[in-house]
């Protein structure tokens, strides 16, 4: 069956509520969850997720809180959980120590959009992830040239996260129509599952995406649903359940 990946910002609106939201997602049948460690300068995120980062930081959320959150979640669900964040967070923590700790709390992999393969000789990010048995999830875009796709294909593991369009995160009405061509181009060089994300917000879109991709990623849309009062989590649950029929 095709898969869904959803996203939470740890500590948004509180640590406890982000934990409940993640469990709701897991129970509703998603296959992967990205746990975003909040950062002060999240350049690849659109407004919705950026503001959630800010709130989480104002609440005092630390990387350590995020590790503990994942450890608690791993006791209650068996689906793979990933840390998503920006490179300064693990860099400041100590990259190797960060990888060790992430593995110890049960992370499946890391999604760090601002550490491109070119910096590998300087930071050894991929090497350290692999040493600690974490998947360094590569993020690519529709304008990534073939030569880079080839290089990325050689180091990719777990799955590859394909960004649609040339945009930051955030839901939109229309997906780019050429996403089919995009993925077939990527498949030539990358033989592991492909996740497609950035801007997916309806069942119709999920269906369209999953014709070509293995994993549909839904971020901002669910974050927005979760904000509705008082039944945010319930709406998230119903939305995810409604997508399940699109996944076959």
């Amino acid at each position: 069956m095709k898969q869904l990946m959803t996203h939470i910002v740890a500590g948004y609106p509180t640590i406890a509520k982000s934990q409940q939201l993640a469990l709701t997602m897991a129970k509703s049948g998603v296959s992967f969850i990205e746990i975003q460690i909040p950062f002060s300068d999240p350049v690849a995120d659109g407004r919705t997720i950026m503001e959630a980062n800010q709130v989480a930081l104002e609440n005092g959320t630390t990387p350590e809180d995020c590790f503990e959150l994942m450890a608690r979640l791993k006791h209650k669900t068996h689906i793979p959980l990933l840390f998503m964040t920006y490179f300064n967070i693990p860099f400041r923590y100590g990259l190797e120590k960060f990888c060790e700790r992430a593995k110890a709390v049960g992370a499946y992999g890391l999604i760090i959009p601002d550490i491109p393969i070119d910096e590998e000789p300087y930071d050894h990010y991929i090497k350290l992830c692999k040493k600690h048995d974490l998947h360094p999830i590569q993020v690519i875009s529709s304008i990534t040239p073939e030569e880079r796709l080839k290089r990325i294909g050689k180091v990719a593991s777990g799955f590859v996260y394909c960004v649609t369009g040339t945009r930051t995160t955030g839901e939109r009405k229309e997906l780019d129509s050429d996403s089919g061509d995009y993925l077939s181009r990527v498949r030539k060089h990358i033989r592991i599952p492909l996740a497609l994300g950035f801007g997916i917000s309806s069942k119709k879109q999920v269906k369209a995406v999953l014709k070509k991709a293995d994993i549909a990623v839904i971020g901002s849309k669910i974050l927005k649903l979760s904000q509705s009062c008082p039944s945010g989590r319930d709406r998230v649950r119903r939305f995810i359940l409604s997508l399940n029929s699109a996944r076959i």
């Binding site: 601002d114 550490i115 491109p116 910096e119 300087y122 040239p145």
Partner: peptide, 17 residues
């Protein structure tokens, strides 16, 4: 674009090309 430990191009893949 590297100067000792510093510099580099730490950007999302989208901006690399």
């Amino acid at each position: 674009g590297h100067f000792g430990l510093y510099g580099g191009r730490y950007l999302p893949e989208l901006l690399i090309p």
